[in-house]
């Protein structure tokens, strides 16, 4: 089953930079600068990158929560960018989103029942009794109980809130779920529980995920394929194992090298090596000289089946 459910072509988002007293536009902040990828039905595509690389913006553009500046987004062979606003709202029934911060993504003045019922209400699904039934069913599915329905978000722990966020995303039976850093705000002990829940749900509901994260370990755990983003561009895209075993792009290599390894011996050896080159090991110091050499933009090139890299290789 490798039918693409979503095809993203050359999507861009430029935010205007204004300056002067008149607020005149003096330039563009290229948050996302020509990103292309596709997602197959039933798979998980991980998108990794450091903060500010445009991965969240990309996720939000897919739902047109942020309007893309350019490019096309084909979902089920339908160009989302061509849809009027009203039609776009209907499409959102099939594409849902899970947010990063479970403390901020739930309306503090609504009960859990209201939060979960609202997607059904908005899309006109079911009558009052059916909706109530579906809410309590969904609470059980994500590992809560229907008893929780009458409570408010502030009465739950972070992990429980994220389960509510996941339940909300599932209410309308979507095909595609965009998970924007769904576990990075949670305790490490809770992260794996939520990740396993997401995996289980994927099998159960035949979901397709786009999993956005900065934690390489988490992405490896959940993804079938992984895309690496840097400064608004996709620099490498391949099967998860290929990315981790055989990273081809210099940035991917450095990103993987920056992953902390819980081994004091290794760290010391690493530090020694780094000092020899006159720099201290820091995950923030990333050599991007290749960016300057490749001043002209490179499209993703398929170097081996399913492995795309956006840089001329030496």
């Amino acid at each position: 089953m490798t039918k693409p459910i979503l095809q993203v072509k050359n999507v861009k988002k430029y935010f205007p930079i204004t300056g002067g007293i008149l607020g005149k536009k003096i330039g563009d902040m290229k948050a996302v600068d020509g990103v292309s990828f596709h997602v197959n039905e039933g798979e998980t595509l991980g998108i990794v990158g450091e903060s500010g690389c445009g991965k969240s913006t990309t996720g939000r553009m897919l739902l047109r929560l942020i309007e893309p500046t350019d490019g096309s987004i084909l979902f089920d062979n339908q160009d989302l960018r061509a849809l009027p606003k009203k039609e776009m709202r209907k499409v959102r029934r099939n594409i849902q989103m899970i947010f990063q911060d479970p403390y901020a993504s739930l309306n503090p003045r609504h009960t859990v029942e209201k939060i979960l019922e609202e997607p059904l209400l908005v899309h006109g699904i079911g009558d009052a009794t059916e909706r109530k039934k579906k809410v309590s069913e969904m609470l059980e599915v994500v590992g809560l109980t229907s008893y929780h329905a009458r409570r408010y978000p502030h009465q739950f722990s972070g992990g429980q809130r994220q389960r509510i966020g996941i339940a909300r995303a599932l209410m309308t039976n979507p095909k595609l779920i965009i998970a924007d850093e769904p576990v990075s705000a949670l305790d490490v002990s809770i992260q794996s529980q939520v990740l396993n829940l997401l995996k289980d749900l994927q099998k159960e509901f035949q979901l397709t995920y786009i999993f956005i994260a900065h934690d390489l370990g988490v992405v490896r755990h959940i993804s079938d394929r992984v895309g690496v983003m840097y400064k608004g561009r996709m620099v490498e895209l391949a099967d998860a194992e290929k990315i981790y075993q055989n990273p081809l792009h210099p940035y991917t290599q450095q990103l993987l090298a920056a992953v902390p390894i819980p081994d004091p011996e290794y760290y010391q050896a690493d530090a020694q090596a780094a000092i020899q080159f006159g720099t201290l090991p820091s995950p923030y110091v990333i050599d991007d000289s290749w960016m300057n050499i490749e001043s002209e933009r490179d499209d993703l090139v398929e170097v081996e089946p399913g492995h795309f890299v956006a840089c001329r290789l030496k």
Partner: peptide
């Protein structure tokens, strides 16, 4: 974020 979430739901 819950406003963004509300928009994502399709409200």
């Amino acid at each position: 974020e819950y406003i963004m979430a509300a928009r994502a739901v399709g409200m």
